[in-house]
Design a protein around this nucleic acid. Structure first.
Lengths: 211, 211
DNA sequence: GTCTATAAACAGATAGAC
DNA sequence: GTCTATCTGTTTATAGAC
């Protein structure tokens, strides 16, 4: 506590940096090739450490995988937490769509790994899904239902609306190869990014705005 | 040619059956655990054949994987081929959404494997994507553009519209675990299925129908 | 904390009998 | 066509020196 921070920093900072380098490398590889398609050797090489050194920081491959997933879930949930009832429905939905598309643009690896995990039945996230996600989604669905009851939104099922926003925004990260094969563009292109934001916002709002 | 068919059938039918059993087992496992997460031993066991027998029918694991993908692509493309310009836009879009959701309900394995392949950069489907899918999508996008020009559809980008339908319909297969964790339902439930069809159709049409 | 060497397990593929 | 046995390479994980 009262120790000089410089000394602690000297000892701890490199450790943190290595852990983070490994976690970053692991995210990149796991998200492309999955847990079984990636060897610890590859992760170590990309992170710039030796394999045995990596296994000093993470007891085994699965533990590393779980650590990557944990970081992921927070990033994935953040935009949903921002979704607020105090706001104008159209603004709130438009902002949420934009935020999710920013994640798809800036963290496509995270989006893909999340998708991979879901496809496999989320063996490691199932607990979190049932607890944390379930309660937060129930809360946000109630907000949406409030808007519907107040006549500020068409009577759509709140859960399906949430699914639609998730699906349409993540699609641009998870199916980026397909999107690029067909349009020649990626979200990294600023013009294409804004065009995507507008289109998704327009369709969703057109579909759920008050009749 | 002129040989009695019964003899040929006796010799060939079992071979076809075995091949198909293996392909079916492979689809189920590859779609959950990916190419590297599945061993040929597991596929053989599920198909009810021995490992070496499987390798008599398929030279190696990759060849089996490619065979599975080829069958897949046709199933995935079929609903898009049905999408026709001669029809009423609202009917054509509603039918397409329903057809895609039927695939998500009846062939979730195929949908998931397709998604897996996309996430990994579609190393084996890239060629098909650039050729076949590209041309068929261009054709359908032209149909949609025709409707827009005729004032029968709001001026949305046809490609983004297609992406939205793909994303929202496949979501119910690829993220089935999440959907089930949050709603307690799957598309196998007839009531939930119809509710999903209506909601997706309503939002999409609300978003793109003429203003 | 980091390295080299190696143990132990597994999976893909082949050889050859039947 | 189908089986058993086996070879081969890869990969995870550990032991132990520095």
């Amino acid at each position: 506590m009262t120790k000089p921070k410089t000394k602690a920093a000297k000892a701890i900072a490199p450790v943190q940096n290595k852990r983070e380098a490994v976690l970053g490398a692991a995210l990149g590889l796991f998200s492309r090739f999955g847990l079984h398609g990636t060897s610890v050797d590859q992760v170590a090489a990309r992170a710039g450490v030796s394999k045995s050194n990596l296994l000093y920081y993470f007891a085994n491959k699965e533990e590393l995988y779980v650590c990557v997933l944990r970081e992921l879930l927070e990033l994935w949930l953040a935009p949903l937490r921002e979704f607020s009832a105090e706001r104008d429905p159209q603004q709130a939905i438009a902002d949420y769509i934009r935020r999710k598309l920013v994640v798809s643009r800036d963290s496509p690896d995270a989006s893909r790994l999340f998708c991979l995990e879901m496809i496999q039945g989320a063996p490691l996230l199932r607990g979190e899904l049932d607890r944390e996600l379930r309660s937060i989604v129930a809360h946000k669905a109630a907000v949406i239902q409030g808007w519907i009851d107040a006549g500020r939104l068409a009577p759509v099922d709140p859960q399906h609306l949430i699914f639609m926003v998730w699906a349409t925004t993540q699609h641009y990260a998870d199916f980026a190869v397909q999107v690029e094969a067909l349009t020649g563009k990626t979200l990294a292109d600023p013009v294409f990014f804004e065009q995507t934001v507008s289109n998704v916002q327009a369709v969703v709002w057109g579909g759920v705005g008050p009749r």
